[in-house]
């Protein structure tokens, strides 16, 4: 081993770097922007189409959402969510959280269409910008 010590150290340094990044990813699962390997699995990129979320999100904007949730039942008001409504994927913003006997529901609005509202259950949410 002493004969190959420089080779060993070079390999170990590379291994240690990867090792540390993976462990960091384990510790900080979806708490910050994707700066490491562990968070890559959470990424959910979407491309905005249509004017429903203007002026915040224009058509064609690339948006990096996260599909890892800390607590799906407890998303704050104002979170941008990607959700399914009758099999159609839509992008909206949480306006209100409703707690009923059957469980938690969210009232989702869309910035450019004040009249339009959806009431969805947390299970319909695929991804959000909540980190």
């Amino acid at each position: 081993m002493k004969k190959y010590k420089y080779l060993f150290v070079t390999i170990f340094v590379v291994f240690a770097l990867i090792f540390a990044l993976v462990l960091r990813g384990y510790r900080l699962d979806n708490q910050s922007l994707p700066t490491n390997l562990g968070e890559l699995k959470c990424l959910y990129p979407v491309v905005v189409s249509g004017q429903s979320m203007e002026p915040a999100l224009k058509s064609g904007t690339r948006l990096l959402l996260s599909k890892c949730f800390k607590d799906k039942q407890n998303l704050p008001v104002g979170t941008i969510v990607f959700f399914q409504d009758n099999g159609v994927n839509k992008l909206g913003r949480i306006k209100e959280k409703i707690i009923l006997e059957e469980g938690v529901f969210y009232k989702i609005g869309r910035d450019a269409r004040p009249g339009e509202e959806f009431t969805i259950s947390p299970d319909q949410i695929t991804a959000s910008d909540e980190k």
């Binding site: 002493k2 010590k5 150290v9 340094v13 770097l17 540390a20 990044l21 960091r24 510790r27 700066t35």
Partner: peptide, 28 residues
């Protein structure tokens, strides 16, 4: 002792020290 070289021992020790802080969640 292993390398008889201060530069290597300093940089290796502090690289490993740095990596522990990477695991701790410090920014780059």
């Amino acid at each position: 002792k292993s390398f008889n070289n201060t530069t290597i021992s300093f940089s290796l020790t502090n690289f490993l020290f740095l990596l522990v802080h990477v695991v701790k969640g410090y920014s780059l």
